[in-house]
Design a binder for these strands. Structure first.
Lengths: 205, 205
DNA sequence: CAATAATTGTTAATAAGATAACAACAAAAG
DNA sequence: CTTTTGTTGTTATCTTATTAACAATTATTG
């Protein structure tokens, strides 16, 4: 089954919002209610749900629990995946705090840095290790995803390091465009571009 | 002149990379060289450049300086725009460090928080103020763009506050989907979604 | 000086994504 | 029991974005 990229993004958001709704005790939800949560159209919600092969009940909507579970089956692996952060600056810390314990199937198990003052401690419950240990730890901790938050000029070597260690996917927060081998999935995440985009759009009037 | 959204994003990236190349003393650049920097196709580069109405010289390529300047005219305003950060957690700090002095036409002039220990100090050269001052400062400092880095559950009220103060554009890093009036431009920036997207794509094999 | 290679600018084709339209049908109302 | 209303699932349409194709033309080579 092929799913469009944008659908995957929305599924992630559906799930997060549905978890909150579920916790409030609601059991069923209509497409237009989900749409309202994300500020998109109901058609889009229905289409996404169609694409993943789920069926709601007419005039009752979608079973929230079932939908959450199905999205889990699509996005996560059974055993979950382990993640590491490259660079424990403010950015890395922000992600760690943010993530800590929130996604049971996506665990940040290590942060790597080169600053001796940081190494050996825990941050948000996650051990901070020296980059020299990367290779060994990726294997022993079974890490498949790396998040790059190092400064611009270290990004390239960090990415290469991860690739050499057999990483499967990378999220790059460094604003340095990366070029990875085909078998490594890359998600670029460029803050500056986002802000400049807003600058452009706020110009007119 | 209407420019596609994606073109704007790439222009921002072209400029940043061209600035580096220019600093190295290079004067002209071919479309395929720019393409290589961002790991996209040369056609796309040429098309973007066409859309902004710039002309290179055949077999010499594009004048780097001119291209940078033109991108500046498109993205920036003459006087520049002032930006504030809402929330001086790790995320806010990361952005401040990152940005400090880098974009002359896009200045972060204030950070707002509610923690009394932070207020009154400077961080990365930027004054940290109490949110109560927001309304006054947005006017006196002429702030037109706000960056939201507060936690999930504070995001909504923070956004409303900004809107009420007449902000023109918002970048939302909070993972809480926002719904703003039409006249306020919104850029959502969802870290968790990015990471989950990578999780999805690294599943297969 | 003629032929070849390289590179831009632009139009045409394809692909991806979003929106609209609507048939099917269940529940509610009369 | 019949009609109306609301909601899903899906196909068709429209829009946006990317890629391919190629004419025009300048520099380089022989």
């Amino acid at each position: 089954m092929h799913l469009p990229d944008k659908t995957i993004e929305r599924l992630s958001q559906y799930r997060r919002n549905l978890l909150i709704i579920l916790a409030k005790g609601k059991e069923f939800i209509f497409s237009h209610e989900i749409a309202q949560l994300l500020h998109i159209t109901p058609v889009q919600v229905r289409r996404d749900i169609m694409l993943i092969g789920y069926n709601g009940t007419l005039r009752r909507g979608y079973d929230i629990k079932e939908l959450i579970d199905l999205i889990g089956i699509i996005i996560d692996t059974d055993e979950g995946q382990n993640v590491c952060i490259m660079g424990l600056g403010n950015f890395g810390k922000a992600i760690l705090n943010y993530f800590a314990g929130k996604r049971p199937k996506l665990k940040i198990v290590a942060a790597f840095d080169i600053n001796p003052e940081k190494i050996g401690h825990l941050y948000a419950g996650v051990p901070v290790l020296h980059v020299d240990e990367l290779s060994a730890k990726i294997i022993s901790l079974n890490i498949s995803i790396g998040i790059i938050t190092v400064p611009f000029d270290k990004a390239l070597e960090t990415a290469n390091l991860l690739v050499d260690c057999g990483i499967k996917g990378i999220v790059n927060f460094s604003s340095k465009p990366l070029n990875l081998p085909e078998h490594v999935y890359l998600e670029e995440f460029d803050m500056i571009t986002s802000i400049e985009k807003v600058a452009y759009h706020t110009k007119r009037n």
